[in-house]
Nucleic acid binder design. Structure first.
Lengths: 220, 220
DNA sequence: TATTCATATTTTGTCGACAATAAGGTGTTT
DNA sequence: AAACACCTTATTGTCGACAAAATATGAATA
């Protein structure tokens, strides 16, 4: 179960903190108290501080010297910035995936499309959260660019998950997303790099526009 | 002089280590020994380890649990990955710069172009290293996207500088770069986002192709 | 000479402690 | 009642120490 915790407390605590922040158990804007967390996890402050330094690199918390560490807050401004970066990076990923993905991996994409379709019919829950992530993760992996994979799956996506969790009650555009996903898989299967990049960028760009317009409503 | 060191040893050591790695004082592939570094800097291992965790997030070192931390090595594979990511992110930056840069900032770009031109005439040294970075940094800053600025200026560019340092004897394509920089500033000044993005991507893409072909020569 | 095994040394991961700074609480003055 | 100053408490930044694991050393064997 503890796949990524590499035997060291720092890693283990890193993951726990990431999860706690991403799904709001530790509230956005709140301060991380070292003594409290150390006691809570039953560890000393050494590895805890190292874990926090790691979270800093993931942009989940920020550090004010001699004051402490606070969880980031995601306002519309931040969300737009995240989605702009995501659009650029995942566009690249889709293009590279069209070049480098193996047929076996493309088959798995098709399976995910089926699940997605089923979700819409059944009105299930899976695809509204995890399923979409699975789909995007698989394409990113298909790029075979290790740096890109790290920056997206192990950095930016924590922020995306955090945002999605905060807005989990809002209904997402699952129907339209399925159509766009299908086009995307098609382009990848045709090994059309440029089209794959364009479609992915448009897909994410539309998601951002959707967020922007919905944000207005909920604000007023 | 110590602008970024925010009063804490961890920050100070981080910067020193970054510089030492980027300009090869600590060799690529070599191991970072905690006791030796701690003694060398005259600090305890606590803040040193936190500084190293930070470098991990910058992709300058990687960590093998219970073995130690090693400096990354940049082979052609890594360089290509870096330049692919750079192309995507800096393309975005250029597009946003065309949208968000103030005239004052654009004027500064013109000044850098003049310096660049002068360099070619004088056969000077400045633009072959720092000048080019200044130019790109300024455009990235012009994007006004804080996340993007951090990912490029404070993360990816350390790797780019490290690579450039390793290949500093090789002559760069300064002449051609000037032409491309001029076009780019033009597009930004015209507020043509799409063109600015395209030109930046092509600029970086060509740099990558240049590297790829030269790498072959030096290998054999 | 090369290889294996046992021992000694170094290094990593973790802990608890201390000083300096920041935060919080109390009482006094206006 | 609000503002200020003072004192107490809590937290951060840093250090040195210890155990377990990994590496290096060297002897013994094939």
């Amino acid at each position: 179960m503890n796949k990524a915790s590499d035997q060291t407390i720092t890693s283990e605590i890193s993951e726990k903190l990431i999860n706690a922040i991403v799904n709001g158990e530790i509230a956005p804007g709140s301060k991380l108290s070292e003594p409290k967390l150390a006691q809570q996890f039953n560890i000393s402050r050494g590895p805890l501080r190292e874990a926090i330094r790691r979270l800093e690199g993931l942009n989940l918390v920020y550090h004010v010297p001699r004051e402490g560490v606070k969880v980031v807050t995601l306002e519309l401004k931040e969300i737009i910035e995240i989605y702009h970066v995501r659009e650029a990076l995942e566009g690249l990923a889709a293009g590279l995936a069209a070049r480098n993905m193996e047929q076996k991996e493309i088959d798995e994409l098709h399976k995910l499309l089926e699940l997605h379709e089923q979700y819409i019919d059944d009105n299930g829950e899976y695809f509204r959260q995890e399923g979409d992530f699975d789909f995007h993760y698989k394409i990113i992996q298909g790029s075979k660019n290790q740096l890109l994979i790290k920056q997206l799956c192990h950095e930016l996506y924590h922020l995306v998950r955090m945002f999605r969790y905060q807005t989990r009650k809002l209904k997402s555009r699952t129907q339209q997303a399925l159509i766009e996903h299908k086009q995307l898989v098609n382009a990848i299967e045709q090994r059309d790099e440029q089209l794959a990049e364009l479609l992915m960028r448009r897909h994410i760009s539309r998601a951002r526009e959707n967020i922007e317009s919905k944000w207005q409503e909920n604000e007023t």
